[in-house]
Simulated scan of single mutants.
Amino acid sequence: MRRSVLALLLLLVSLTACAPGAPPDAGDPLSRQEQQLLARAEQTLIARCLTGQGFRYEVRVPQPPPRRFPYVGDDVGWARAHGFGRDEERRLAAAKAADPNERWFRSLPPARKRAALAALNGPRPVGLRARMPGGGTVAASDEGCTARAQRHLYGDLPAWFEARLTAANLTPLYVPRVRADPAYRKAVRAWSACMKRRGHAYPTPEALRAALPGTGAAVGERELAVAEAECAADSGLAATAKELDARYAAAARRAHAAPLATKTRLERAALPRAREVLTNRP
């Protein structure tokens, strides 16, 4: 399945800027501002590379992703304002549709689209390979504008590829463990009882979301989201999930301390190069 140039760039930014923090022995993780600096520099390098090959690309500030609740909605104020976040999803979809890079890419004939993707990602996913924390491997090209930009910033491209993918894929390791913990299951039962007293019969927060309509917004959806969040507090599910998430996430980071330390080290070394890239604009 082909992806657009912008979608691929946003994926790169999310892997760089939204990965879990490193454990204490890996050094202090970067601040949000430093992460954004690296993301802007990488996009700038990619844009220079693509435009140098005759493609059009404008460096854009990525839209913040919708807020996610991996266990249960627990922010009453946010639920009152956004329900289950469908408005945030529509905002992102509208921004993507209006983005000039998206419009340009969609206007290209098929052969030109293939050429643009090859220029961005390399001709074939060969040259970079990383084993994922949960099993399996991911391969990518060590050619193309993406690889060129990351090599410029981080130097050791294979090490960076493995480190950032490890950091970005720790969540699937520990979220199922949180949900399987007896304390979490007990809190979910209390949450379900709270919801039932309010007239909403759902055994789990996952079942609640699975029952939502696929599109649009259900009548009373914000009220239901508020009930979910209030019951998360009243039942103790929010506090239990937070405590267990911190515990299991820390264990996952300890188990993968070496690549996380590599990620932090390469990022810190890249900061001066990123500032130079953004200062010396052509």
Rank of each mutant, 00 (worst) to 15 (best):
A251N: 01
P66E: 01
R189E: 12
A261D: 03
G236C: 10
Q53L: 09
K96N: 12
K113E: 12
A98E: 13
L170Y: 08
H82K: 08
A238S: 15
V175Y: 11
A227V: 07
A119H: 10
T262A: 12
A210S: 10
R131M: 09
A168I: 05
H256R: 09
C194Y: 07
R254F: 03
A47Q: 02
L30H: 06
P24L: 03
V188C: 06
A258E: 15
L12F: 06
R40G: 11
V226W: 02
L92D: 07
G52L: 09
Y174M: 03
R129M: 11
A232M: 08
A19C: 11
R209F: 04
L38P: 06
A26R: 02
P24R: 11
F105W: 08
R247N: 01
G52V: 09
R114E: 15
E162K: 10
R112Q: 14
A201D: 15
L128H: 08
L108N: 06
W160P: 01
N101E: 06
L266V: 05
L244M: 03
D234A: 15
P62G: 03
G199D: 09
V219E: 15
P23L: 09
W191S: 00
V219N: 12
V219L: 15
A227W: 04
L224S: 01
P205I: 04
A232Y: 07
G52D: 10
